[in-house]
Structures are given as structure tokens and as C-alpha cells.
Design a protein around this nucleic acid. Structure first.
Length: 511
DNA sequence: ACGGGAGTTGTTGTA
DNA sequence: GTACAACAACTCCCG
């Protein structure tokens, strides 16, 4: 009898319930990763995800090796790979975390479950963080989150020696350097230390502007999405740091109390959002609130608008800089993500599904359980959140007053002064802005980049039209009736602000 | 952690 | 010193 620990998006050895329990049996143990070619062809998955995964797997393999074990990699769809393993390992128990992934992994898990039942193989699935499978009610969810995070982490168990099983080598990733995103566990732990000891002090202040967010944010989203760190490990490390800070004299605490509070709140929302997709997987494909069905996405110019948005060529500098930055680095801060979605869904009045898949492919830290609830929230299709339409010009003035971020990613307008860089269409000579052609006739050394486009919509007009349509829809009693049911199922149970407001579940950003 | 307008309060400059 | 306009800063509310 053998224990197989199937690693998915939980690429670590510590705080790993499946590995811990499998190791307690003292039976032979196989640490398995299955490379599933079909998954990597899905519309929301891209080579940059693979580059990150590959780095985190390499780290995992190294850790297993140091503990006298080995990572076994196999290629194929999960059921065939497992079926083949039954020939070498006649009896085994399969251990893995419950995965709240995309529709593809959900379907795959159901096939694996069916296969395991048919073959009489036991598949033990362990809860992932505070995300509860078959959650009956949101009412007790917060308390459960706390209980999970209060539990000590599972230590890395002692592992038995590996079985002589061959690995199939995985393809090398291409075209994306994941190093700066610290995908693997060692890099992630190093980043966590720096964040909690130094970089994170400006967290609350720094995460709004794309100029400062990369340094003052935790930069842990990629390793968290791959499970190279568990949320509980990060929560507990943050609590330990909060204890240290509290022990300092009040005038030596600096920005830390605020920073750590804000960070902890986000760690809490991490599971909170994933729970929404776990409870209602259809929101990857369908509007949470049906009143928005068919509302957008059937106008003649949509394809061109989408293409301009997706390439960072809308003519709105802050939108385009954010998109191009994301394309280049695989990461952008939360506010810019919200702005990008809001612009596609409100100003351009596009259905959120294609934009969501585009962003999923670009976000190296793509976490389906966070992505789809967030996209729907910023698109207004949850029906329970206040409509939030970002003005990209205002965001530019607020978050990048001097235009430094814009200049980094939009060379076409880098020459404009700060007073014009957020509204290049107001510049005296909006189109060319390129050095006049050289006097000699030979072909130019550098292909001259295309001119920066004019804005593809009128900002104020588009925003007002979108707001009017959304608010109009929300007026109906039918809309409200359904929204109340949605709040009951998904809404945060945090108390509303004091001052004797109605004690109902909040329908705001955090719901 | 939406934006913008209206209304309110606070500050400054001027006669 | 007082009166008051002009304007900034802030809160509240609604789409």
C-alpha cells in the first residue's frame, strides 16, 4: 500500500495537510505532480503561469531532495496518469488539497473522483485554507476563518525514502522571466521577511499608486497562488510581527500598526473571495446577478474596442500604461486592475468575459477564486456592490501626478509635460511628436513607433452613460429582490459602520 | 478602496 | 476690528 500526495497549487512541504497525513501512515510515499497539457491550453492560462509554476516546482523538488525524497513528474491527463500508476503501484491512497480552480480543473477533479470511485481507490481531499467545500451558510464563515488561522501550521513531516519511479521531464518554460515575482518557496520566504521587517511599513499608503505598489506591497501573490506559501503561514507571520510592533514604545511603531492591519485584512479577503467561486463556480462564466445578462457585448465596435484595450492602445494614458506594464511584468497593483476592468466594462461597455480571460492570462498571480468575483464586482454584475466607475484621467492625476509611470510605458507621449500627459489629446500638436525624419535617405535605424492613438471614447460621456444604465437597472424591485438573495449567499457578515445604520449585510466592496 | 455636485465649514485677503 | 468675498477642504448624497 502506497500513499500518493498529488501536488496541484500547493507547492510546499510545510503546512501541507495531505503530505502531513500521508506521512503519518509510515507507508511508502510518492510526491506527484501531473503536467496536464490540456490545462495549459485553456483560454485563461498562459505561458507566464507555467514559468511561475516551473520555478515553484523546481523549488519543491529541491526541498524534497534535501529530505531524502523525490518529486515524481508525469505528463498526461490526470485520470490516465493515475490509471497507469495503478499498474506499478497496485494499491494506493491519493491525497490532495481541495482545489478551487477554474472550470477546467473543477471538471477534471470530478472525473478523478468518478475514476477513484469506480476503481475503489480512496481519494482524501483536505481543506484549502479557510475555503469550505459545500458551505451551508456564510453566517459562521468569519469565525471559521479565524479558527483555521489560529491552528498551528502542519510541520514538514519526516519522509520515507522514495520509490523507484521514473519521472517524465517537463517542458522548459519560455519567454517569461518569473524571478522578480518570487514564485518558489525560498524566494517567497525571503520576500516575506523583507516585507514584514522593512518594505511593508508603507503598505497602506503605497499600494494605491503603481509607482510605489511594487515595493510597498507584499509581492506574495504569485507564491500564494501556487501554494508555495500557505495563507496561514503568512497570517501567522504577520501576527508575530504585529506582536513585536505592539511591544515597541508607541513613538517607535511608525507606520507598522496601520500597515499590518491593512495587510491582515487583505489576507482575510483572500479566502473570502475564493469562497465565492467555491460556492458558485458558474460565476466564471455567468453574471452573478441575472439582470445584467445580455446587457453588453453586442455592439458593432466592440471587437475594435476590446483589441485597443487589450493592447494598451485606448488613448487614455493611465489605462494604457497599466495594461502595458502588466503585459511586460505580469503584475500590476489592485487599484490599476480595478481601473482596467471598470474601463472595459463601463466606458467601453464590453461584456466582462473576454476581458477577464485576457487579464487572467496576463496576471502571473491568476487565482480564479479571486479573479472572477473581482471582475464581476468591478463590472457591476454582482448587483450587490455599489457601482464603481473609475475615471482614468482622475486616477492619473491622483496616482501618477508627474506622469512618471506613464512615461515608463508610453514612449509615444513621454515628451509631454505633466500638465498634458494625462490628456495628450489637449496637447497643441497631439499626433506626431516624433523627431522629424533624418536628412539622409537610408531607412531609419529604428522603426518609428505608431503614434499614440486618440481616445477611443469620450470619457465623461461614456462614464455617465454607463452609470445611468447601471443605476437604472438597479432601481427595479425585481433587481433588489435577487440582490438580497445574493447577499445572503455571498455577502460579508461584517457589521456595518456604527452610528445605528441598518444592521444588514453590507453590499459594498467587501461583500 | 467611484466621481462629481451640492452644501458646509474654515481660511485668507481686502477694504 | 469688522464685514465679506473668494476659495480651499471637507462631508454628504446620489447617479
Amino acid at each position: 500500500m502506497t500513499e500518493i500526495v498529488w501536488f496541484k497549487r500547493d507547492l510546499r512541504l510545510a503546512d501541507h495537510a495531505p503530505l502531513w497525513h500521508a506521512a503519518q501512515s509510515k507507508r511508502p510515499l510518492v510526491a506527484l505532480y501531473i503536467f496536464e497539457p490540456d490545462l495549459w491550453r485553456a483560454a485563461d492560462i498562459s505561458p507566464r503561469h507555467y514559468a511561475c509554476l516551473y520555478a515553484a516546482l523546481a523549488d519543491l523538488a529541491r526541498s524534497l531532495h534535501e529530505r531524502g525524497q523525490r518529486l515524481v513528474t508525469r505528463i498526461g491527463d490526470a485520470v490516465s496518469v493515475l490509471e497507469r500508476l495503478t499498474q506499478t503501484l497496485p494499491g494506493f491512497t491519493l491525497h490532495s488539497h481541495q482545489e478551487t480552480g477554474n472550470g477546467w480543473t473543477y471538471a477534471r477533479d470530478r472525473e478523478v473522483a468518478r475514476w477513484a470511485r469506480r476503481r475503489g481507490i480512496i481519494w482524501r481531499e483536505y481543506q484549502n485554507g479557510a475555503v469550505v467545500r459545500r458551505l451551508a451558510s456564510r453566517d459562521v464563515w468569519d469565525r471559521r476563518w479565524r479558527a483555521v488561522m489560529d491552528q498551528p501550521v502542519f510541520p514538514t513531516p519526516l519522509l520515507p525514502p522514495p520509490l523507484p519511479l521514473a519521472s517524465e521531464p517537463l517542458p522548459a518554460p519560455q519567454g517569461f522571466d518569473a524571478t522578480a515575482l518570487s514564485p518558489g518557496r525560498r524566494a517567497a520566504i525571503a520576500r516575506l521577511r523583507i516585507f514584514l521587517s522593512a518594505a511593508g511599513e508603507g503598505y497602506a499608503r503605497g499600494i494605491s499608486s503603481p509607482l510605489t505598489a511594487a515595493e510597498s506591497g507584499s509581492r506574495l501573490s504569485v507564491p500564494l497562488s501556487l501554494g508555495a506559501l500557505s495563507i496561514r503561514e503568512v497570517v501567522q507571520a504577520t501576527r508575530r510581527r504585529a506582536g513585536e510592533v505592539a511591544a515597541l514604545p508607541a513613538d517607535r511603531r511608525g507606520g507598522w500598526p496601520l500597515a499590518l492591519r491593512a495587510f491582515t485584512a487583505r489576507l482575510h479577503w483572500h479566502c473570502h473571495f475564493i469562497q465565492k467561486l467555491e460556492s458558485e463556480p458558474r460565476i466564471e462564466y455567468e453574471n452573478l446577478h441575472p439582470a445584467y445578462d445580455g446587457l453588453r457585448g453586442n455592439a458593432p465596435g466592440d471587437a475594435a474596442k476590446y483589441a485597443a484595450w487589450a493592447a494598451g492602445r485606448t488613448g487614455f494614458p493611465m489605462i494604457d500604461a497599466a495594461m502595458r506594464s502588466l503585459i511586460t511584468t505580469g503584475w500590476i497593483n489592485f487599484r490599476m486592475r480595478a481601473m482596467l476592468v471598470s474601463f472595459a466594462s463601463a466606458h467601453l461597455w464590453l461584456d466582462w468575459r473576454e476581458p477577464a480571460r485576457h487579464l487572467a492570462r496576463l496576471f502571473a498571480d491568476y487565482e480564479p477564486g479571486i479573479h472572477y468575483p473581482q471582475v464581476q464586482m468591478q463590472s457591476g454584475t454582482t448587483g450587490i456592490n455599489t457601482v464603481r466607475i473609475y475615471n482614468p484621467i482622475k486616477q492619473g492625476f491622483d496616482q501618477d501626478p508627474e506622469g512618471r509611470f506613464i512615461r515608463m510605458f508610453i514612449p509615444e507621449i513621454a515628451h509631454l509635460p505633466a500638465s498634458l500627459i494625462h490628456t495628450p489629446w489637449l496637447a497643441p500638436n497631439p499626433t506626431p511628436a516624433y523627431p522629424s525624419p533624418p536628412a539622409y535617405p537610408s531607412p531609419p535605424a529604428y522603426p518609428s513607433p505608431p503614434a499614440y492613438p486618440s481616445p477611443i471614447v469620450d470619457e465623461a460621456e461614456a462614464r455617465k452613460a454607463a452609470a445611468a444604465r447601471l443605476y437604472d437597472l438597479r432601481k427595479s424591485g425585481e433587481h433588489r429582490r435577487i440582490a438580497n438573495a445574493i447577499v445572503e449567499k455571498h455577502g460579508s457578515r461584517k457589521r456595518p459602520k456604527r452610528r445605528g445604520q441598518k444592521p444588514q449585510a453590507r453590499g459594498d466592496l467587501f461583500a
